[in-house]
Design a protein around this nucleic acid. Structure first.
Lengths: 119, 119
DNA sequence: CGCACAGTTCATGAACCGTTGAAGGGAGCG
DNA sequence: CGCTCCCTTCAACGGTTCATGAACTGTGCG
């Protein structure tokens, strides 16, 4: 029995009988994973993450480097924090942001490297 | 000289002099990487990718499994294809979709596993 | 206390996105 | 050819997201 035999029955209306349904993820898990990707799926936020991969930084510095207002940057950080991609730490008047863990750093840097190669 | 000495100069308005700017990514690279994440950052599209990680599938089957219209599914696939996350192959009346490469499969499955653990 | 500085929150308008039904395209079959 | 089936494209609408300035919180300083 070859693989071609399977294609003898290409009718999608048929049941797949065998019960080899690989089982889909829970909708909540799907939503959670998607939310994380969505948070990273914005150039401005991705840039912040890249910047933070090189070390902690306060809001006003991020604002100055990106050329956007502090309010704008704060909103972006709020979203990244909601997805637990970044953490913050207070020091006097300043609040320093950093990546939550090394997984985030790897994800961001490898994605950028990949996007750089495959233009 | 300790790390505390560095914090003696927390004034963000100062130049960072030394030229140790880790260099930001090109805006086009940032946009490209973000576009990929954005494509995966939707539960419905992520579900499609998960499904395809288990093997090729035609549009009508994807539609039936998700309970959405074929038009809807086709639109989602169009977007995924635009980001080169999936490829398609014609076979008679059917068009089979599959993941573009193993990187996509790894990304999707590891993300879902991670989202499953860390509720 | 009063002021300045760092950051957040809130409200709003613009831009963007996802879904949907209708119409179109292409392959097979009689 | 004409019909059906599978799929794609188009246009429209409703919802979400993003940027922005104004108001607010909180910290330090004199």
């Amino acid at each position: 029995m070859t693989a071609a035999d399977v294609r003898d029955e290409p009718d999608c209306d048929h049941e797949h009988g065998g019960g080899s349904k690989p089982r889909l993820s829970d909708p909540a898990v799907l939503e959670r994973a998607a939310a994380i990707f969505r948070a990273v799926g914005d150039p401005a936020r991705l840039q912040i993450l890249e910047r933070l991969a090189h070390g902690e930084c306060c809001v006003s510095e991020l604002a100055e480097e990106s050329g956007d207002g502090m309010s704008t940057v704060s909103q972006r950080l709020k979203l990244l924090r909601a997805e637990r991609l970044v953490i913050r730490r207070r020091e006097g008047k300043h609040i320093f942001y950093g990546l939550a863990d090394s997984h985030v750093s790897e994800l961001v840097l490898s994605a950028l490297a990949h996007a750089d190669e495959h233009g």
